[in-house]
Design a protein around this nucleic acid. Sequence first.
RNA 1: GGGAGCUUAGCUCAGCUGGUUCAGAGCACCUGCCUUACAAGCAGGGGGUCACUGGUUCGAACCCAGUAGCUCCCACCA
Length: 882
Amino acid sequence: MLAELPTKYSPTTVEDKWFAHWMSKQYFKSTPDNREAFTIVIPPPNVTGVLHMGHTLNETIQDILIRHARMTGKNACWVPGTDHASIATEAKVVAMLKERGIDKKDLSREEFLKYAFEWKDKYGGIIIHQLEKLGCSCDYGRVSFTMDDHYYKAVIKVFVDLYNKGLIYRGARMINWDPVALTALSDEEVEYKEVQSKLYYVKYKLEVPNSTQEEFITVATTRPETILGDVAICVNPTDERYTHLKGASAYVPLVNRKIPIIFDEYVDKEFGTGCLKITPAHDLADYNIGLKHNLPIIDTLTENGTLSEAAGMFVGDDRFVARKKMAKALAEANLLAKEEEIKNKNGFSQRTNAVVEPRISTQWFLKMADMSKPTINAQATGDVTFFPDKFDNTFKYWMENIKDWCISRQLWWGQQIPAYYAPDGSFAVAENKEKAFENLRLTISDLRLEDIKQDEDVLDTWFSSWLWPIEVFNGITEPNNKEINYYYPTNVLVTGQDIIFFWVARMMMAGFEYQNQRPFADVYFTGMVRDKQGRKMSKSLGNSPELLGLIEQFGADAVRFGIMISSPAGNDLLFDESSCEQGRNFANKIWNALRLIKGWTIDNSTNPSNQFAIEWMNERIESVSADYHKLISEYKLSEALRALYSLIWDDFCAWYLEMVKPEFVDGKANPIDAKTYEATITFFEKLMHLLHPFMPFCTEEFYSFVKERNENDVLVIKQFNTQFSASSSSVLSNGELMKEIVSTIRDARNKNQLKPKDKLKLMIETSDKSSFEAIQSTVCKLANLTEITFNDSKAANAINFVIGNNKCYLDAGSLINTDSQKDDLEKELIYLEGFLKSVNAKLSNEKFVANAKPELVALEQKKKSDAESRLIAIKESLSGLN
RNA sequence: GGGAGCUUAGCUCAGCUGGUUCAGAGCACCUGCCUUACAAGCAGGGGGUCACUGGUUCGAACCCAGUAGCUCCCACCA
């Protein structure tokens, strides 16, 4: 049997086989029934491309949780899907078209959408395939997409509803403009980064009442190209340098437009020259000051960031080109006092990386102040719990200072805003054109249907994904249907901390608005996956491994292991391929344990000497299982995996199997007794159950292989028992004793050049014979002893060591190295004396005895007596050596 | 400018409500082994002033204050 099995486990074919099997059995399919539901909705990956390591981490965590729930008997439902990712995907499609020589401008909306859907079909398909390869147990019959027909309708319905509730409004506001994507952005889509800039000190000629003297005022600015849109100079009213300028005017350099000097406390006297030029069209602060002081607005930029006709100069030049030209022109006109290098922050578009331009534009907004309240409450009361909780404060702060959300985007890829305009500019918001028409005709009697036009803009992608936990169950389009009532609210959301505001917060708000309930009970935040040097994974650095390639190389189980073995919740994960190697080795280790077991022949004998091993292994599994389920419930998945790794590798393979493994006689393995064999199979099965959520493929393979059975598959037939009997501490502590003796003997062999094969005798002087008797046969086997005798006279050439306070003598026949024993014993002696000293110090400290808990004092007393008796044993052993 | 978090072995991190001499784990490293499950392995081993300085306490990696360094989030100083 054994010879037929290769020594290496090869995952590739096994994984595909099992995935196909699971699918054919429809194990992942969920329909509402009378069991408790356990629901997860996947954070839908963007259809911009393929899954990366961040997704891999995320999906693996979800799969572990969903498989664990399934195995505890819950009706587990994991909904997969993808996000249309409006701006991100549109940018990709535009770039793809450009490569093919097609300009978006030359396409109609319909033609463009056709390309976009082709793109979506391609990448959406790849993403689902990757999920399958990773072993994700999603209900693939539920694959959703944020632009599915029903989903599209849901988004429109919600827009109309919120508009009718007065929460959505349209207006001209200062917004963040992406001059590359040519669309508005929300505040969250702008990333501020520090850049090296120049601060230009520009002289403006003054006109001061009752003064003929030529005078200038110097203004510091980082954006001289916006000078052309200046409408005022602002100084602080308490700034004595400028108090004489009341009623004065200045001339905009080069164009000589006359503008007023105004006074506002907003201006920081310390910065630059204490003068601020006011350009309401191109800066939010200036815009607000402009409103306050009733200033005009001169928009000197076009939508793509070039200078407009209104600028009067450098028309058509890009803003950065114009900036340089302006500086040069100012210098030539002798109006540039100086230039200074400074660091300041610029806003960049999250998707195109273009420098964002503050711009006045007519957009659609959602009022947030009232909608945020139930969410703030839910988080404060623990209705929704964050793991880890360090995000509580930032979340609260953001929610309490929430601003209105700009939800319109000047794109084509997304849900088109259901506002319909009559030729006179009036509009109606309705679910379709016909309804809008009826509505508009109330005021415009001669209106024809073909006269009205739908708003060209689409909605922010998050305005659709905030409905995800609801509409994947058709909760918006068919309220109160059986599915939404059964699956909602979901149990846990597993997502990146970077989208806490974009998505988590908004899903919560939508949940309370449309279901009157939280969308999820827990949120598990993952960190960012970085490479082992701590760098972000990116295509340009080439440090982002390709998921399918990794799976090909190590197997999906190993990749899952690799990414889970050290992934602290909420902290960044430094991913190293070598941890996948560790996972592969782990699967291989189990495979070889299985080979060993499968190689045994069984007979009807009984072998009482295995009794201890069986009891001990059973207790170990029980004890670790309890920890394991607890750790998973606390989302400490790495720790749970580590505990299993050690249970399987150390306890089961290194100790248990060695304890029960039949010995070889005359080159032939003895058979194993049926009882031990059955126990071993049961342990193996239990271990496969426990490991299955983490490494589903190999555990399924090994489980199916270890025993013939009618009912099959680890995945469904066995339910986790989360009730545990109190473990037998004496068995576990005897196990520790056994390990200590065996390790000490092995170490003694090492130090005395005794071969593992040399049979030795052990004599123990002990007052606790029964503990040793329980492990006697096991110790003999693992340490290769012929016998253990008690309280016998010691052999002449024995190796001395002390276990607890029991003196042990290992009879090597001929003694080789007394020095190392003496060394070891003396080291131990010094340590123990120090230990005893500290314990005594504690116990003689009246305050300790008075203040510490009684059980603690008792513990110290026990430590003292244990140490004292051990000390005596060691001293006696030492004196025996002299 | 405001807020949050982090700093423990060469690396990545555990260390829950102070209490075994508490200083841990996994990698990595060193030594010896191809010992009939497994070299993707086995047996053993070395390694840390718990960032720094004070304080509270009978007792501090853990609590408090300050210092330094790192990370992240938020904010309209041009």
